[in-house]
Nucleic acid binder design. Structure first.
Lengths: 239, 239
DNA sequence: CAGAAGTCACATATCAGACAAGTTAACCAA
DNA sequence: TTGGTTAACTTGTCTGATATGTGACTTCTG
């Protein structure tokens, strides 16, 4: 006979649960303001510190945002949080992240080729067009939007979130890469064609083709990143 | 002349940063006990609530664990946190999670077949042996250990963490599944052979073979889960 | 009347003191 | 050795006071 660990649940934990429950049930939605600490501790009949503890924990979990003088607000999903404390861009970590991205993106694109709706295609097209228009400044943003549109088309929200997390934790590297791109027209050209090929494969619902196209694209990007970064690797070291 | 936005950074945020920095720099490693709140607020020259706020936030982020009467401890990565607020096992979410797991596991096993060390093989072997020994009670635990050993062998720590996250957020479903298994000897038999096949492929460094074997295994598991759950689907609804 | 400035209510942020409750280790006695 | 008590140290909770940020309202002024 085994015994479960007896853990006298702390008051703040109970408060936390209650609040999470209310959010999950929809009583408070994204952007809503929660009752003030005073109100909460009165209606729950606990001290202020217990309520504060619960709210602070939820802030750490990323479910709420506490603004002094205003109140506490429910934040929607903040995917950045997933890899938040992992933003230590040593070379090995970046390689690992990129590998995960490769795995996810190549799988996602296969799903997208099968599940994509018309709206998804429109979103991808839009991102691509914007990218070729404003080549030099914020092409990175639209590049990201293109990939996210694909992830969205996969029909699996968790995959979408994961990719968003990874992208945001690779922010710095991505920004570096797009600066690299901006300086070399031939890279823009190549990448544009790779994107178009991926798009085409998704349009004609060719999962295997889309997979290959994405694989090609990511390999190319990885190669160029390595090339670009080995030149100024001292820059990476310090960041 | 531009002015930077003056954001009076809260004391608790500064404290939080300091602690995170110490953890990142390695002054405190996984499992270590942080100084007590009293000590911290003395050496940082701030009030207890500021320190408490910081620690509570870190607890929410999953970086530390606060145990009453003992102290505050650094928890290495606590993967459960990633998908923490996603433990709403409606059918669609489970399907999405399982799909992500499929993608990750099949990729991981390919990497493992190439990168596995001798220690990795020993760990897998051990998990498999334990599983066939104590068939009925905690086979689930060793099943999980087997998969985690593979993930570890992939050489990509982020992949390992992600899989751990997903497993722990599927805890309930997994537990249900293993209860299902325990009641049907033929399932045990099938799964045992699937595991052995995966193991074999990894041993002889056959990435493609390992991929196929894992695919086969997961498809089988998915099929059995669907079968088992459709019977008692009312159970899932309520949880 | 319109806009700037002041005022006030209310929110969180922080501090500090007191006590409750859990953990550990050391000590002591049967 | 075993079991119980105690002491020291930890976090948990409550509370009251004060500081500070925010927004709405009022008042002053041209």
């Amino acid at each position: 006979m085994e015994f479960k660990r007896i853990s006298s649940q702390k008051i703040s934990d109970k408060v936390e649960e209650q609040i999470v429950r209310l959010i999950k049930e929809g009583s408070y939605k994204q952007g809503d303001k929660l009752p003030s600490v005073r109100e909460l501790c009165e209606s729950l009949e606990v001290g202020r510190s217990a309520v504060r503890d619960a709210l602070t924990t939820l802030k750490g979990r990323g479910l709420v945002e506490i603004r002094q003088g205003e109140g506490t607000f429910v934040t929607g999903f903040n995917p950045k949080r997933y890899f938040k404390h992992m933003l230590m861009p040593n070379q090995k970590e970046i390689e690992s992240l990129f590998q995960v991205r490769e795995i996810l993106e190549t799988s996602v694109v296969k799903l997208a080729a099968v599940n994509r709706s018309e709206e998804d295609l429109v979103a991808m097209r839009k991102a691509l067009d914007h990218m070729s228009l404003c080549k030099y400044d914020d092409s990175g943003q639209h590049d990201c939007q293109f990939h996210m549109a694909i992830a969205n088309a996969s029909g699996n929200p968790i995959l979408h979130q994961l990719l968003e997390s990874i992208s945001s934790s690779m922010e710095k590297s991505m920004a570096d890469f797009h600066r690299l791109i901006a300086s070399k027209p031939e890279l823009i050209y190549d990448i544009h064609h790779q994107h178009e090929l991926i798009m085409e494969m998704i349009v004609c619902e060719d999962a295997a083709g889309a997979y290959e196209a994405m694989m090609l694209h990511l390999s190319y990007v990885k190669k160029q990143m390595r090339k670009g970064f080995s030149i100024r690797s001292e820059y990476i070291q310090t960041h």
